[in-house]
Design a protein around this nucleic acid. Sequence first.
DNA 1: TTGCCCATGTAACTTGTTACATGATTGT
DNA 2: ACAATCATGTAACAAGTTACATGGGCAA
Lengths: 189, 189
Amino acid sequence: MSLKYAVLAALLEGEASGYELSKLFDVSFANFWASTPQQLYRELERLERDGLVRARVVRQERRPDKRMFSLTESGRRDLETFAAAPPKRPTAIRDELMIKIQAMDLDGVDPEATCALVEERATWARAKLDRYARVRERLLGGRTEEEFLRRADRIGPYLTLMGGIAFEEENLRWCERVLAVLRSRAALS
Amino acid sequence: MSLKYAVLAALLEGEASGYELSKLFDVSFANFWASTPQQLYRELERLERDGLVRARVVRQERRPDKRMFSLTESGRRDLETFAAAPPKRPTAIRDELMIKIQAMDLDGVDPEATCALVEERATWARAKLDRYARVRERLLGGRTEEEFLRRADRIGPYLTLMGGIAFEEENLRWCERVLAVLRSRAALS
DNA sequence: TTGCCCATGTAACTTGTTACATGATTGT
DNA sequence: ACAATCATGTAACAAGTTACATGGGCAA
């Protein structure tokens, strides 16, 4: 139900193809709404059928044709209504690593293996933070954060990005605390 | 695929009924693996059929019968294998509020309404933190964190709880920053 | 020459959600 | 009297995942 609104919100940035949206959902949108390219293509079909989005075919040379999607007036109105209404469902998280941590104390589980998993997570978190930093610079466009937040027309995308950055930073801190604990326990035995 | 392991990991705490598991998934497990009671009942059926879990019917007076589930040896081994293997899928988050924030700059969206949504989120975050604090006290059982992390047999559940607490604290800080921004913009116009 | 990028899609399958049903007990 | 708690479940539906297919361009 909400992937619909995630797509509409993504199209606020302007016209985009399914492929471009799938890239966007891989970087910034992934922080709060996970989805695969297949889901997006399916959703776009539905949104077009329902008149919330319109498609324009762009012929390309030496590249497959692409369909550029944009919001219709009715899509925009629907999104406005959604944006002011209270959320229907609580935030859902699905993080396999945490299940593995929950079960790490089992006899058959090598603490070294657990360490490796946490280190991998930390590496990913750092990579994500790097990408966010670049997106942030682009959004700020030379202004300071304070200046931007006071004057810019659209601050929504910046506020969600702030959320993503804070989340990954916290993630990284957690990884480091866990690694410190695991290492000091390894030293004891 | 991983709800399976989330359930097995939950049963590490000991025998539990479907109902009790659904309570657990509502409090601590919800931080990293969301699921509804109906999913749990279905999953438990499957796990029993596959021999990873065994059920024992407990007759009760003045209460419906209940089925208490516990891990079998093969369930435990399966969980051990899972715990040491790298995650198959990246962490997925689905947070409606963030979509609403992303779209908040639309003309038809009242900034007051957006504020109210963020305040509600902050209230929930505080309530969650309260509950986590109680779970934490129970786990520590009077010891300090340092002492606990050095000597306890099972630290997995504490580490995931630490993650949940850090996540909610960050959430709350984000809410407060957003509210400060929204209020100072409201004062300007 | 292997593999990734662009660009879209179909089909089969697995998960997750929602609404409903039962029925006694306990608390306000 | 009404709602919540305990305790489980069915059925219908919506959403998400995985594997596969197409086919030229481009870089190491």
